[in-house]
């Protein structure tokens, strides 16, 4: 169908702990991501979601296999691949305004794109908080800032590692809508790690289900619901039941843990 932006080919990643025990965080993971799609990765804690995202970001390297973005092998970080961490990733010594601008400053293009900072502040609805420091705003606001900071670099792919994991459900729904809005506007490819099934169905074109020990892709589910999606709709609930079943089976062997 549509063209492929990211190709992950038979990637493996094993961690060796201090006591010489090994963890197979990713086992033979292959995945193709379409340009402009919204992809979610879901799975119990410890199944290698973060590890996979870090490989795509270039913060880590696979021991075998490769990751190809736009025809080029991923090596090291690049602002074309934005990354939103779970929480508390804002620089505490910078104001909200300067945190968002840090994306531009890190690349040395602040002068040319200065005006965009205010645009993003408006976009995420944080007017009046420009001069506040991160500890003075709520967790939800902070995550919106983190998203804006990554998006201001206009990345091809935005990687989000449970960005709403620590937020209450109201704030979460609010940011989900914001995220959809930004996605439709910028046409950025989104890869979202989440442990919230509803969130995955609400946002995604496709949902990747992963299983732990070793971390593998179990199944990929397409969500063919037209927007706007209703969390209580029959089809929505059918998909939800389906995913929960698969997740449950997936983690039935050891024990289910949906903690963060």
């Amino acid at each position: 169908m549509s063209d492929i932006i990211l190709d992950i080919k038979s990637v493996n990643r094993t961690f060796v702990s201090d006591d010489d025990s090994t963890t197979k965080a990713l086992h033979d993971v292959s995945l193709s991501v379409n340009r402009g799609e919204f992809l979610s990765i879901i799975g119990s804690s410890g199944c290698g979601k973060t590890t996979l995202l870090r490989l795509i970001a270039g913060l880590d390297t696979p021991e075998s296999g490769e990751l190809i973005l736009n025809g080029e092998k991923i090596a090291g970080t690049n602002p074309k691949r934005g990354y939103v961490f779970q929480q508390g990733s804002l620089f505490p010594w910078l104001t909200i305004e300067n945190n968002i601008a840090s994306g531009l400053k890190a690349r040395g293009v602040y002068k040319e794109h200065k005006g965009e900072v205010q645009q993003y502040i408006n976009l995420i609805g944080l007017n009046g908080f420009e001069k506040s420091f991160p500890h003075q705003i709520s967790g939800g606001m902070a995550q919106r800032v983190a998203i804006a900071r990554a998006l201001i670099n206009n990345p091809d792919v935005l990687l989000l590692d449970e960005p709403m994991g620590a937020l209450d459900s109201f704030t979460r729904a609010d940011i989900q809508d914001k995220l959809l809005e930004l996605w439709r506007k910028n046409k950025t490819t989104m890869i979202l790690v989440t442990h919230d099934v509803d969130e995955a169905i609400y946002l995604s074109d496709r949902i990747v289900i992963m299983t732990p020990r070793p971390g593998e892709i179990k199944e990929i589910i397409e969500v063919k619901l037209p927007p706007p999606r209703h969390r209580g709709g029959t089809e929505f609930l059918a998909i939800r039941r389906d995913i929960l079943e698969k997740l449950h089976l997936a983690s039935a062997a050891p024990q289910p843990e949906y903690t963060i």
Partner: peptide
């Protein structure tokens, strides 16, 4: 470490990591 990782994903090179991440943190 996350501060450095955040900066790197934003496109930062070593000078930025030193002067805009490590030093402010050490202030």
């Amino acid at each position: 470490k996350t501060h450095f990782e955040v900066a790197r994903t934003l496109g930062a090179k070593t000078p930025y990591l030193v002067f805009c991440v490590a030093i402010p943190h050490a202030m």
